[in-house]
Simulated assay, not measured.
Amino acid sequence: MPRIARVVLPHMPHHVVQRGHNRQVVFAGAEDYERYLEDLRELSSALEIRVYAYCLMTNHVHLLLGPGEEDCWIDPDPAYRDLANREAERRARYARFVELGVPEQELTLMREALQRGQLTGNPRFVDEVEQNLGVRVERRRPGRPSSRRG
């Protein structure tokens, strides 16, 4: 069964996952991680891509990437910067936020939307996406839409 097409929003950050073939190890040692980050830094600059975050695992990589306006290797989100004036306090507050986790009901909603290639968000967000794409993308019930005859 083919994978559901992803919603691609122009000028918005995207979560990118790279996996090793058949989930094989891609980072065997520290030098592999370092080389990947050097290449990522160089390519992000050359291609004008902002790197908001990365997570390098043994057999895969998670990247949060967005379009570039300036040369910035790791570009902290404004919401992160607004957590506190000093970096140490920002990190502490962010760590507390992450420790809280996501409520199970929200996780279920996100998983269902992801599986169906749909959005989660408030009506304003859904409206903005529709304006950008020219198509309405929102959470729908599973299965075929009912045919209404009047």
Rank of each mutant, 00 (worst) to 15 (best):
E70N: 08
E138L: 09
C72M: 04
N132A: 12
D77F: 04
S147M: 13
Q115S: 06
P142M: 10
M1W: 06
N85A: 10
R144N: 11
G29C: 12
R144L: 15
R96G: 04
V17R: 12
L107W: 15
L114G: 13
G101P: 08
H14I: 10
N122P: 06
Q18M: 11
L114E: 06
H62A: 01
R86Y: 02
A88Y: 01
D71V: 13
V26N: 01
V137N: 03
P2W: 09
S147E: 14
A30S: 09
H11R: 11
H62T: 06
L100A: 14
R19T: 02
H11E: 11
N122Q: 08
P103S: 05
L37Y: 05
V17Q: 10
N122I: 05
A88E: 13
E69Y: 14
H15C: 06
V8E: 10
R139E: 08
N132P: 00
R35T: 06
E42T: 15
V8Y: 00
L40G: 05
E128Y: 00
R35V: 01
G150R: 10
D127H: 14
R93H: 08
E130W: 00
P76F: 08
E70F: 05
L133Y: 01
L65Y: 05
R91W: 09
R35K: 10
L65N: 02
V16E: 07
V51I: 14
R124D: 03
E31C: 02
V135G: 00
P10E: 12
S45R: 15
